[in-house]
Amino acid sequence: MPYKRLIPHCRDTQLLLSQAQDSNLSPLTRARVRVHLWTCTACTRFSQQLAFMRQAMRQLGKD
């Protein structure tokens, strides 16, 4: 398997990050996403934004 196929593209990573909000990713998929996040600031920001929105929604639910 070529090296590039081990690390997902941004579009795939963002989709996986969104899916991870609702269900658990497999250990291999989580590792692939983590490696991508180490190298991509845009997807890291996207991940942080998802976490922020999730926390905000939790807080809204408490009010």
Rank of each mutant, 00 (worst) to 15 (best):
A51W: 08
M53N: 03
Q49D: 11
T44Y: 08
C40S: 07
V35R: 04
R54T: 09
P27H: 05
R32W: 00
C40Q: 09
C43P: 04
T41Y: 13
T39P: 10
F52W: 14
P27A: 01
Q55L: 03
L28M: 10
M57R: 13
L37W: 01
N24G: 14
T29K: 06
Q48D: 02
L37G: 10
C40H: 01
V33Y: 12
T41N: 08
R58A: 12
R54A: 03
W38P: 01
R45G: 13
L28V: 05
R45Q: 14
T29R: 06
H36D: 04
W38R: 08
T41Q: 14
M53V: 02
R45W: 02
L25F: 02
D22N: 15
T41A: 02
V35P: 08
C40V: 00
A42V: 15
V33Q: 03
R34P: 14
P27V: 03
L28A: 07
A42E: 15
F52S: 08
P27I: 10
Q55A: 11
W38K: 05
C40I: 09
M53I: 11
W38S: 12
L25G: 10
V35I: 12
L50M: 15
S23A: 11
M57P: 06
S23N: 05
T44A: 07
M53Y: 15
W38H: 11
S47W: 00
L25V: 01
A51P: 13
L50H: 14
A42F: 14
L50R: 14
P27G: 08
Q49F: 12
R30T: 07
V33W: 02
F52P: 05
R58T: 02
R45Y: 02
R45K: 14
R34T: 11
V33L: 00
R32H: 00
A51N: 13
T29H: 05
Q55F: 04
F46E: 08
H36W: 06
N24R: 15
A51F: 03
T44Q: 09
L28C: 04
R34H: 14
A56Q: 07
T29Y: 04
Q55E: 07
T41P: 07
P27S: 10
H36M: 02
F52A: 09
A31G: 02
L50Y: 15
A31D: 13
C43G: 07
L25P: 05
L50F: 15
A31C: 09
S23M: 10
T41H: 13
V35G: 00
S26V: 00
T29M: 12
A31W: 05
T41I: 13
H36V: 12
T39Y: 03
L37A: 06
W38E: 14
R45M: 07
A31K: 07
M57Y: 10
T41S: 14
Q48W: 09
Q55R: 12
R54C: 09
H36L: 04
R32G: 00
F46A: 11
R34F: 04
Q48H: 04
A51Q: 15
L25M: 04
F52N: 03
T39F: 06
A31T: 06
R30S: 01
M57V: 06
T44M: 05
L25Q: 01
C40F: 08
A56L: 09
L37K: 09
T44G: 07
A31V: 10
Q49L: 00
H36I: 01
A56V: 06
A31L: 12
R32L: 02
